[in-house]
Design a protein around this nucleic acid. Structure first.
Lengths: 235, 235
DNA sequence: CATATTATTTATCAAATGATAAATAACGGT
DNA sequence: ACCGTTATTTATCATTTGATAAATAATATG
């Protein structure tokens, strides 16, 4: 049974003039294509996050209160819809401001890192992001390789550059990033990501506040990384 | 032991007397049921680890060089086969000796922890274990909830008990395990598990030796946990 | 109101997929 | 060497599932 559509949903979109009292069991009438597409995308994000990409188009359509062939008016294939979901979540939730946040030496290093990881955690520690990322990673290595390459370039390497500068170590142009350094940053990243795994894949609610955990992890990270930085440059 | 036979393939099993030169394109003839079942299980572990549990029985059969209906002679349903895979990997690779290893106070605490996590890492940091665990977790929360409950009881709590004892803190019967304590142990566990995620889900080879990483993580863990242990008991 | 446009549905296809039943053939016992 | 047992295959079913084409109906426009 189609549960009578909710007020919070798309019910009021495009109910322009006549306040048409549609038959209650029926979905909304002819929506504007751009609206419909947005609605489909939004629901697809939630749907595939829950069921994985093997989730069936018919079930997705049912959740949308539309028929399954209508999906194919907006997306040529299921794969195209999934691609759109990727864009929406992995690209759309990346904040362009993060690069400058990390490298803004007007702020103390620790507060920059804390701030960045708080924002990053807020972006990725969601049911959708974590599960979709894991589903995508298990499905094919390509997508995640791209994402993690970006993460390394835009975050990991920048973080190490800043740390080197902070502690007066040789710049990476002079002494390339070491395995130990990158491993430390991976460790910090892993700790935060794993909070999402615990919550949204293992289904175990976190007992502590995320921001406190992040603050603690960043502190530990910074105190730990001093031990493995390369020797000071003797200028 | 099931894996006792055959270095590489099932080719030589049961080629008893006559050394029958079967047509090369054909699979082996009538295998002993217990052997066949073991072979199917072994291949199913690899197959589902690669493709997830939506992997198709026909493709699995092809890899086994048998026909698909033969699978149903050994396992009533696909679900039963998956259940067997769970058993084989998650139950079968758990070592009963770990409990005593952790609590054996004849050994120093640090070497006990290092030894345990080295052995545990050796068991779970495999393509099969990591991916199957993640597939299972994403599919339904039930299985992993069971596993993680076991992990908490048989490892996490024991570790905290040992640490409390080592540093002369109140026993957990007197002062229950705190959120911070369990969070620290989770963190250590996460770090090790994430090594597997990087390798086998993200497809990024590790640049450092696993044992060295574990030693370092255990060291960091032990130095970090002293700060968050409850106050000493004043007896 | 009449008509064109098009968002949406209905009907349906073809391939995939888990599962079953009957036919076949390899092996062991006598 | 024969024969019964049974491991294995062949043939096939019933759903499921991504996708397409045609029919329907809501909206805009004149």
């Amino acid at each position: 049974m189609l549960k009578a559509f909710t007020p919070t949903e798309e019910s009021f979109v495009k109910q322009s003039a006549k306040a048409r009292p549609r038959s209650a069991t029926r979905g909304p009438p002819r929506l504007d294509p751009s609206q419909r597409e947005a609605i489909i995308t939004r629901e697809a994000v939630a749907f595939f996050a829950e069921h994985g990409f093997e989730g069936q188009t018919r079930e997705l359509a049912k959740r949308l209160r539309i028929t399954q062939p209508l999906l194919y008016r907006y997306f040529p294939t299921k794969e195209a819809l999934i691609e759109r979901v990727y864009q929406e979540v992995f690209v759309g939730r990346w904040k362009a401001s993060w690069g400058k946040l990390i490298t803004d030496r007007a702020e103390p290093l620790k507060s920059r890192l804390t701030q960045f990881y708080r924002e990053y955690a807020e972006a990725i520690l969601t049911y959708e992001w974590i599960r979709l990322f894991m589903f995508a990673a298990l499905k094919d290595l390509g997508l995640n390789a791209r994402y993690l390459k970006m993460l390394r370039e835009r975050v990991f390497e920048k973080v190490i550059v800043e740390i080197r500068a902070e502690y007066a170590r040789p710049p990476i142009a002079q002494l390339p990033i070491t395995v130990l350094e990158i491993e430390m940053v991976w460790g910090l990243h892993a700790a935060i990501f794993y909070l999402g795994v615990r919550q949204f894949i293992y289904g175990m609610p976190l007992e502590a506040d995320v921001n406190s955990i992040i603050d603690a992890k960043v502190t530990t990270f910074l105190s730990g990384i001093r031990c493995i930085l390369p020797a000071k440059s003797r200028v």
